[in-house]
Amino acid sequence: MSAAGVPKDLHARIYAETEWSLSHKLRHAAQSVVGRAYPRIFGMSREPSWLFFDLVFPTLGMCSFVFLLRSRGADEAWISATILASALLTFWTSVIWMMAGQFRWERDSGNMTLYITAPVGLGSIALGMAVGGAVGMAFRAGIIILGGSLLFGAQYEIREPLLLALTMLLGIAAMYALGVCLAAVFLVSGREADHLGDLLNEPMQLLGGLFAPVRSLGIFGLLAIGILPLAPAADAMRQLAVPQLAASGLLPVPVELGILAVMFVVFSLLSHFSLAFIERRGRADGKLLTRAD
């Protein structure tokens, strides 16, 4: 049976539509990244309560550390370092909450089904999530630094602004690349991974050297710097923005930058393979990527 009016060249036309040039593929990938980043950048700012939680709670956490430091008579330089660390923490929190658990949310909401059946790669979706998250958090981090500095009179002495910017950029990139890997791991592991993420939240902040230098952690500090992007990023930023604390750094800034670059590459590769793995496994087992009916 054949429906009336079907053109004779139908198959040739359809086949031509499936032929995408390299430039088409690149444009499509870029558009997909922007498309997925959009809800994170613009959508989230429409929920006042989120803004409140994202700004007020980190600021309260920062204040508690600042008051603690002041009560102990710590050098004012540590106040500046704490404010920087709080800004970095907003990115890390976003990696844990908005990256790692995201794929499972996408699956349970039915979005993952639409992503898989669309001609868009999971890599573009993940990159869009990361870019959107990083841009959205940059705004919050900026407010935390500005507000904290004004509130506590913190001062910075930035001699190498480009190096500081590069450190921040590489640190954020490495963290979000790790976030994509975690998204795949959390998807496969289920809720247990969520609980583990919650349990590890505080230890991660300690190992990341956010509020105390990783140098003081000895061998664990070295270990942290080798696996956790937060640690070299926080350590290098502290050295670059608050020179009085340079002596507290575990490794020289260029070395830590190198570590961050390697982490970014390694986590990006792991992300690529883990996304390919979850798609393959999801199509094979029929459960990983689709919402339970």
Binding site: W20, H24, H28, Q31, S32, V34, G35, R36, Y38, P39, F42, G43, M44, R46, E47, S109, G110, N111, T113, L114, Y115, T117, A118, P119, V120
Partner: peptide, 28 residues
């Protein structure tokens, strides 16, 4: 393309037009 019944996919914070625009990006 695919439509499943009872599907509430998408992002609640986006408007209807923004949601469609997002998927238009994904479709190339």
């Amino acid at each position: 393309n695919l439509v499943a019944g009872g599907d509430f996919s998408g992002y609640g914070l986006l408007t209807a037009r923004e949601q469609l625009a997002m998927f238009a990006q994904f479709y190339g």
